[in-house]
Amino acid sequence: MSELSNSLEVSTTGLRAQAQRLRHTSENIANADTPGYRRKTVPFEDVVGRGEIGGVRTGRVQLDRSDPQRVYDPNHPLADETGHYDGSNVDLVVEIADAREAQRSYEANLKIFDQARQMSAGLLELLRR
Rank of each mutant, 00 (worst) to 15 (best):
E81S: 14
M1I: 07
N6D: 09
T25K: 04
I96H: 13
D46R: 11
D46W: 00
S7V: 15
R129V: 14
I29P: 04
D98Y: 01
M1C: 01
E52Q: 14
A17D: 01
D80N: 15
E9T: 12
E125L: 06
V61S: 05
G49R: 07
L127H: 02
R57F: 08
G59K: 05
T25W: 00
S5T: 14
G59T: 04
R104V: 14
L92A: 10
N75F: 13
L63V: 06
I96R: 11
S66I: 09
T58Y: 08
A116I: 06
G87T: 11
G54M: 09
Q115S: 15
I112R: 03
S120W: 04
L127I: 15
H76M: 10
G51H: 08
E81I: 09
S11A: 15
M1D: 05
R70E: 12
A97F: 03
A19T: 14
R100F: 10
R100E: 00
V90R: 03
L92S: 06
H84T: 14
I29H: 03
A30G: 10
V71E: 00
G14H: 03
N28E: 02
N31I: 13
L22V: 10
T58M: 09
Y37L: 10
R128E: 10
D73S: 11
Q18I: 06
L15F: 09
R38M: 08
D86K: 08
D91H: 09
I112T: 14
V71Q: 03
R104P: 00
H84W: 09
Y85S: 07
Q103D: 02
G87H: 05
R65W: 04
G14N: 02
Q20E: 13
E95R: 08
Q69P: 00
T12D: 00
V42Y: 03
R100S: 12
P35Q: 06
T13G: 11
Y106T: 03
E95A: 12
F44N: 01
S5G: 01
M1F: 08
R100C: 01
V48S: 13
G49W: 02
I53A: 11
R117C: 02
Y72L: 15
T58S: 12
Q62H: 06
E101W: 01
V94F: 05
S11D: 06
E107C: 07
V90M: 08
E45P: 00
L8K: 06
L123P: 02
A116S: 15
G122S: 13
H84I: 04
I112D: 00
E101S: 13
R50I: 15
S88C: 12
V61P: 02
R39I: 06
R16E: 11
G59M: 07
R70C: 05
G54Y: 07
E81C: 01
R70A: 14
P43W: 07
V47C: 07
P35Y: 09
N89P: 05
E9C: 01
T12L: 13
E52I: 12
L22M: 15
M1Y: 04
R38P: 00
T82G: 08
S2A: 07
P68H: 03
G59V: 10
M119W: 02
E81H: 08
E95S: 10
M1W: 01
Q62S: 05
L92E: 01
E3G: 12
A99T: 04
N6G: 02
F113S: 10
